[in-house]
Nucleic acid binder design. Structure first.
Length: 111
DNA sequence: TCTTTGACGTACA
DNA sequence: GTGTACGCCAAAG
């Protein structure tokens, strides 16, 4: 049988994939947009995306409410997330996104 | 089957 | 302004 995956996982992947280059989003914003009710679900879904690898999900563009790269520890290399963001023009300092408000991308604005 | 943890966020003291 | 506690829902042990 085909893998019956929860829809919300796919939705999280889709929303995360829609994040434009040089932009970042937050777990709370995505959770609120998908009405998951919990930002943790977004993190769980993204965590699975690494193993699942169903789609190239730019999880490095998703940060917490504080703009901190809380998920960097789940990456192959903790510095990889920062390197990717800096490569996109996002300033990272102390594992935190500078000018976060400027780089913040809201899914509701895209939809 | 039950318990604990988990890429967060908000509320209250 | 800072620190602690709780809530959300799901998955792995």
């Amino acid at each position: 049988m085909a893998n019956e995956k929860p829809n919300y996982y796919q939705q999280v992947y889709d929303v995360t994939r829609q994040i434009p280059y040089g932009k970042v989003s937050t777990y709370g914003a995505i959770a609120n947009f998908l009405e998951l009710g919990s930002a943790r679900m977004v993190g769980w879904a993204l965590n699975k995306s690494f193993s699942g690898g169903d789609a190239a999900v730019p999880a490095h563009r998703v940060v917490n409410r504080k703009g901190e790269l809380s998920g960097r520890i789940h990456f192959p290399s903790p510095t990889m997330m920062q390197q990717l963001l800096e490569n996109e023009g996002v300033i990272i300092e102390n594992h935190t996104v500078q000018n976060f408000n400027q780089h913040f991308w809201d899914p509701t604005e895209n939809i």
